[in-house]
Design a protein around this nucleic acid. Structure first.
Lengths: 245, 245
DNA sequence: AAGTGGTCTAGACCACGTA
DNA sequence: ACGTGGTCTAGACCACTTG
């Protein structure tokens, strides 16, 4: 498998080529989340470069949370189902400033043809099949978030046969373990909306209450959209927080 | 000015000490935003380390947007008043997905004693004086955002004597150029609220309309809060967007 | 041409985890 | 004891900007 780097006069820097190469091995499944990858020294000799050059490439991927370094042990493909990563994707905080992770209850789970909106957001053909999950998420026993999750049926083959009650609280783990789909980043659009009567009833608020709507597109490492999630959150006792720098 | 790095057995890595040292020089005003700092080679010989070690420190600061490298020219202290940085702090997007920068009109500008809430958020004494600016921001000629800005009077000496109509659209530039205060990061809390009658009138929406409330604390490089800003945004034609990765 | 950041090497030693 | 990542050096050459 003579992986060759280009050292032409006008080719890109070696460490950038190495980044691409490592990402490719992860995307193609040669290395899976949680796997230990070869040591910097092994990669260096395999690729015919110095340890420092491999290190530069790996450092960039560590900063992008694609790899994780563990001193004395080795470098691993990031597992996005550990707490750190979970909280990184989860921005709901209570009024005391504590991050909270809500518990889910499935309301419905079905397969259907995608709507125009869903197909557009997930980059699917107009008549593509999608899976649709609706669930309530409760914090401290109180229903707080209403979530609609839409997935391309083609990418989650067999999921529809699962017992809805067996769907885990944190779906991203399931995507990774059962379908080899690792969520690496997400784009979110936030709006203020009014609770519809059904929503208000489920969330236990008065109708007319304002809700924070979070429309999230979850993306894989190569920016393919794999999940559309629309959450409606009562911000009476919680808020959405973010740090911009 | 024999700046000494510690090379004791149990001291922190050199490049971390160099990061602290560089940050200190910026915070103390030895180097100001926009300034060219000494070359990697000069710093290396000044500090008695190799160019590579200085480079590691500078790279970390470049990734944190504290410094900016320009090949062939040198390394500069980041100027947070250029477009890139502005948009990095500004997350409002129209429904077509375009980032927009609204135009401001001052409604009021006064000095007063801080409220409990303001003092707590800005980390001030309970009876500290604050400056309070209220303004409407318009996009495409339509009032869209209502903003209340609270500043510690002590840090912005003389600002209150300015003609409100002369306050610039982008305040962070003013903070930097006139008060030597550079905003480096911000924490934001988002909630959905209902427009009060006065707010609804100003924003030209029906009363009872939901608004997105953004409470922002702007921080300097050493995490000192210097501005509290509460914005209320009509999300009929715009939304707040963010990328999480 | 001179000076800057950008890339890369070969080798050294340290700190940590595992066997 | 050994292999891993973590830090650091001295030196090289390239790419870019300015005088």
């Amino acid at each position: 498998m003579n992986t060759t780097l280009s050292t032409d006069k006008h080719s890109s820097p070696l460490y950038l080529q190495i980044i691409d190469l490592l990402v490719e091995r992860i995307r193609d499944g040669a290395w899976s989340p949680g796997d230990l990858i070869p040591s910097e020294m092994k990669l260096a000799s395999e690729l015919g470069v110095s340890q420092g050059t491999v290190r530069t490439a790996i450092t960039a991927l560590v900063e992008n949370r694609v790899l994780i370094r563990k001193q004395g042990r080795g470098t691993f493909v990031a597992n996005h189902d550990d707490n750190r990563a979970l909280f990184h994707f989860f921005h709901i905080t209570d009024n005391q400033g504590n991050k909270v992770l809500p518990i889910s209850e499935i309301l419905s789970f079905k397969q259907k043809e995608s709507s125009r909106f869903e197909a557009e957001r997930l980059n699917l053909a107009a008549d593509a099949q999608v899976l649709k999950i609706e669930r309530v998420r409760s914090i401290a026993g109180k229903p707080t978030i209403l979530e609609t999750i839409v997935l391309p049926a083609a990418s989650f083959n067999g999921l529809i046969d699962m017992d809805p009650s067996e769907l885990p609280n944190t779906l991203y783990q399931l995507y990774e373990s059962s379908f080899g789909i690792t969520i690496h980043s997400a784009e979110e659009k936030l709006r203020a909306v009014i609770a519809k009567t059904r929503e208000a009833k489920i969330l236990g608020v008065e109708s007319g209450t304002p809700l924070l709507e979070i429309e999230r597109i979850a993306l894989t490492l190569d920016k393919t959209p794999v999940e559309l999630r629309v959450s409606r959150l009562s911000t009476k006792n919680h808020y959405y927080d973010t740090i911009v720098s």
